[in-house]
Simulated assay, not measured.
Amino acid sequence: MQQFDNNEHPHRRYNPLTGEWVLVSPHRAKRPWQGQNETPLHDHRPEYDPLCYLCPGNERSNGVMNKKYTDVYVFDNDFPALLQEEINYKAESNSLFQFKPERGINRVICFSPRHDLTLPEMEVTAIEKVVQEWKRQYQDLGSRDFINYVQIFENKGAVMGCSNPHPHGQIWAQSSLPTQVEKTQASLQKYYKEHNTSLLADYLTAELEKKERLVTENSHFAVVVPFWATWPYETLIVSKRHFGNIVQMTDEESKAFAEIIKRITVRYDNLFNTSFPYSSGIHQSPTDGQEHPEWHFHMHFYPPLLRSATVKKFMVGYEMMGEAQRDISPEKSAEILRNLPEVHYKQTV
Rank of each mutant, 00 (worst) to 15 (best):
D49C: 08
R263Q: 15
P341Y: 12
Y73C: 02
Q180C: 09
G57Q: 06
Q2I: 15
I171A: 04
T250A: 06
L117N: 07
N218W: 06
K129H: 12
V130S: 05
I336V: 08
E8R: 15
T125H: 11
G169W: 05
S219M: 06
H9Y: 09
H296G: 00
F153A: 15
E323Q: 15
K129D: 05
R28G: 01
D140W: 03
A158D: 07
F301E: 12
T250H: 01
K156N: 12
R144S: 04
S25T: 15
D116M: 03
M160R: 13
L305K: 07
L177D: 13
Y192I: 04
C52K: 03
I87H: 06
D251F: 05
I147D: 07
H344N: 12
N6Q: 09
E342C: 00
V64R: 15
A186T: 12
F79Y: 12
E209Y: 13
L141V: 02
E234C: 03
V24E: 02
L305H: 08
Y345K: 05
N37A: 11
Q137T: 08
S176D: 10
E212V: 09
G157T: 11
L177C: 13
A126E: 14
L208D: 04
Q132A: 13
Q290F: 08
K313L: 05
Q284D: 00
V343A: 03
R144G: 00
T197P: 01
N155L: 03
R13E: 12
E217R: 10
G317P: 09
S279M: 11
E319F: 10
P165Q: 00
P226S: 08
R13H: 02
K346G: 02
A126M: 08
P101R: 04
K332T: 15
R213D: 14
F227K: 13
F301P: 11
G104P: 01
P226D: 09
A256G: 15
Q36N: 12
N155G: 01
F79A: 06
V150E: 14
M321Q: 14
E253W: 04
G19T: 06
F153W: 13
Q174S: 13
D288L: 04
L208K: 04
E121R: 10
S329V: 01
Y302I: 13
Q248Y: 07
Y268M: 06
K100R: 12
Q34D: 03
N62D: 15
K193P: 00
L340C: 04
L208E: 11
P303V: 11
E323A: 04
E128P: 13
F79Q: 09
M160A: 07
N106M: 01
S333Q: 00
A229M: 03
V108E: 09
L141C: 02
Y53N: 08
D251R: 15
H9A: 09
K262N: 10
C52Q: 03
Q2C: 13
Y268Q: 08
G317S: 08
F153M: 11
Y192M: 05
H27T: 05
G161T: 08
V108K: 11
L177W: 14
N148K: 10
L199H: 07
V181D: 05
Y149Q: 03
I260D: 10
E259S: 14
N6H: 14
R338Q: 15
W231Q: 04
K156V: 06
Y69S: 01
V108H: 07
V316C: 14
K262M: 08
H220Y: 11
N245R: 12
P167A: 06
A201K: 14
N37Q: 12
F227P: 13
P277V: 03
T197C: 03
T118F: 03
H298L: 00
V74I: 02
K332C: 06
